[in-house]
Structures are given as C-alpha cells and as structure tokens.
Design a protein around this nucleic acid. Structure first.
Lengths: 188, 188
DNA sequence: GGCAACATTTTACAAATGTTAAAAAATCAT
DNA sequence: ATGATTTTTTAACATTTGTAAAATGTTGCC
C-alpha cells in the first residue's frame, strides 16, 4: 500500500533515505464514503495523504455550509490550525467516496522536521504549493466571472464534476446553487 | 539597520546561530514611495522583508487592477512564482510610502534552506503563515458581507485605512470603489 | 418496482452590486 | 496660494446574483 506512494509527485523530490525515514511513520487507513476525518473546533493529531478517493473541506456558517477545498488522489489533507498553530481548526474534512489514506502523526512529522533537513524542505514545499494555489483562487475570483470559473473548473477537474454534488461545487466557486444552475443552463 | 530586525516576530524563533547565518546574506535598501520592486512577468531574484513602510501587491486585468495583498512593517514580500516555481510571477509589488527593506538573494536563501535545518523550518513557517491568512480571506469572502469585511479590515488595520487609497482597499475587499463608498456612507 | 430522501432546476421576485457619468473633495506641484 | 490632477462620493440605471418555493430528476433502499 505505502510503497505505491513513492511514485506520486508529492514524494518525487525526496531522496531514498528521506523517503524511508518518512515512511516509517506512515500508516495506511481506509474509510467509507461520508466519513469525517477532520473536525472543526478540534485539534486534529494527524496529517493525511489521500491515496485514492475524493475529499472536501468545509466550514459551517449560520445558514450555509461553504466548501472551500477539494482533494483528490495525491492531495495532502490536514487541519490548518492544528498543523500550523497547534490550535483548533475551522474546517471539517469529509470523504466523498470510499477512500484510502496514509496518515502520519503530527507529533512525528514535527520531530522529523526538526531532525531531517530534507523532510523540513519537503514540508516547506507542501505549504508553498498550497499557498500559491489558494492565492490563485482568490485572484481568480476578482478577475473571472462565475461562468468562466465554472467552465475552467470543469475542464481542469473532470473527475470532480462527475462525482461531487453541484451544491458543493457551487460554494467552492463562490456562488449559490441557483446561480450555478443558471450557468449550466446556458451553453448546453 | 539590520540588527533591529532581530526583534520582530518573524525572527523571534530563530536561534542566534541561525540568525547570524541568515543575516550575513541580508542587505538593507531604501526606496521612495511609488517604487515598484517586483514586476509581474519577471523572475525576481530577491526576497524582501519590509522594515518600515507600506506595500501592495496587485495584478493587472483588462480594465482593472486588483490589489490582493498589503504589507506593513515586518511583512515578507516576494514574487510567489519566482520564489516557489522559479518562473515569472503574476504580481506587481509597489511601495506606497518611502520604505526601508532588507533583501536576500533567492539563490542565497535556497542555499541556506539546503544547508541549515533551522532556516529551512523558518521558511516553512513563513509559507504556512501566509497560507493560513490567505485561506482565511477566501473563506471570509463567502461568509461575510462586504460591509462587515470593510469594518473588520478597518478595525484590524487602522494604519492601512489611514494611508492607503480607498480604490486599492476596495479591490482588496473584493468590491468596486463605488460599493465601498456606499458602505462608508452608512454608519457615519 | 415503488417509496422516501435528497439533489437539481426552474420561476418569480427582491436585494446587492456593478456601470457610467458627473460633481465634490482632496492632493500635488509649481 | 492656485490651478491641475487625482481621488472619492453621489446619482441614476442596468445587471447580476440571491432568496424562497415549487417542480422535476435522481438515488438508494426495502
């Protein structure tokens, strides 16, 4: 199970030694569709890598639930505030399909960051890649209309369009479900 | 000039040895108001720390210019794509006041990341803090109306409200200047 | 199959924000 | 200070998006 991970882009830059050290702390877990693996308002002790399946992160508001992230095979998945500030998070993460995940204890990961410079830089790269993707989305909201955001998302994530409820995609794109329906009604 | 930096939060977690090593690669530069220090579409070779002054990052669209980031004293400032992917960026960064900055060559910083585990983890923390702040903003756009976003921004960044043109703040908040004027017209 | 639960679309209407243009206010340079 | 330039506000109107509710479609389960 874990050996297959070696080939995904996330680990491709790691040397064999660093990979071996990191993988010693990995455990493989499987959960059915619908499982919530990260809860808002809790300090979550694990860092996950999604080996197969689809996940979403969302926050609850008064009348609404906003999905702001999707994960697919190869995505990393963790409570931002637990990971970064060791405090309770704001996101729930729910598996939208039966999934296989690799998990690492945050305490172990932090120890590796202190001891292994290659793994520290690997962790740096993870944060940087998430950062640039998140900022891109913030900027896209300003420059692109909802219709274009939808069509680009559909083109770039065909798997998600097929398998994720439109209500989740609507909030991910920053519109209501009604608006998304209207967008989809135009152009076939 | 550089010694004063030691006390800002950005460096507080660094040991003295790491601080000394990092500071060997720092140079202090001063620029007048209006200077653009990072250009979109260029690979920018420096990483900056804003010692004093105010900066903004923006991208140019067809008819508009969107400001998506403000920096104040203590902020780090760099071309995301240059830093993360070694490729041309999408943001311009402009100094809104006369400013003093510390700069480090990206090539030097990358070398330090490979050689000094403490500095590698310092770089990881920088990306993580930017990441969590950026995601917060994305989520706030969904949950909070423009009026609330403005009032919270005003409360948290009094210095910026005072000294930054409202047209920049409007695009930072994700509304037009006209809408921001309307928000300001209500409640005194 | 057929019912129940849930998801999506549609409709009608309301509210918020955008657009354009012009006036008022503030800022800058000489 | 004064005129020029830029920024901010205001106005009228158009457009987009939201809200609520009903209609339709889909899924899963017994």
């Amino acid at each position: 199970m874990i050996e297959q991970l070696r080939d995904i882009p996330l680990f491709s830059a790691l040397s064999n030694d660093a990979w071996v050290e990191l993988s010693h702390h990995m455990a493989c877990v499987q959960y059915p569709k619908g499982t919530t693996i990260i809860y808002a308002d809790k300090v979550e002790p694990y860092f996950y890598i999604l080996q197969s399946g689809i996940a979403r992160a969302y926050s609850d508001g008064e009348n609404q639930q906003i999905t702001f992230w999707f994960g697919e095979s190869g995505s990393v998945l963790f409570s931002f505030n637990s990971y970064i500030n060791n405090s309770p998070g704001y996101e729930n993460i729910e598996l939208l399909t039966n999934s296989t995940l690799i998990r690492i204890k945050l305490a172990d990961l932090f120890m590796l960051y202190r001891q292994n410079i290659e793994i520290a830089n690997w962790g740096r790269k993870i944060a940087e890649q998430e950062l640039i993707a998140t900022e891109r989305r913030l900027i896209d909201r300003a420059f692109k209309g909802a219709a274009l955001r939808y069509h680009e998302f559909a083109a770039q994530s065909p798997e998600l369009i097929k398998r994720v409820a439109l209500k989740h995609i609507a909030s991910y794109l920053g519109v209501t479900q009604v608006t998304l329906s209207r967008i989809r009604a135009t152009h076939q």
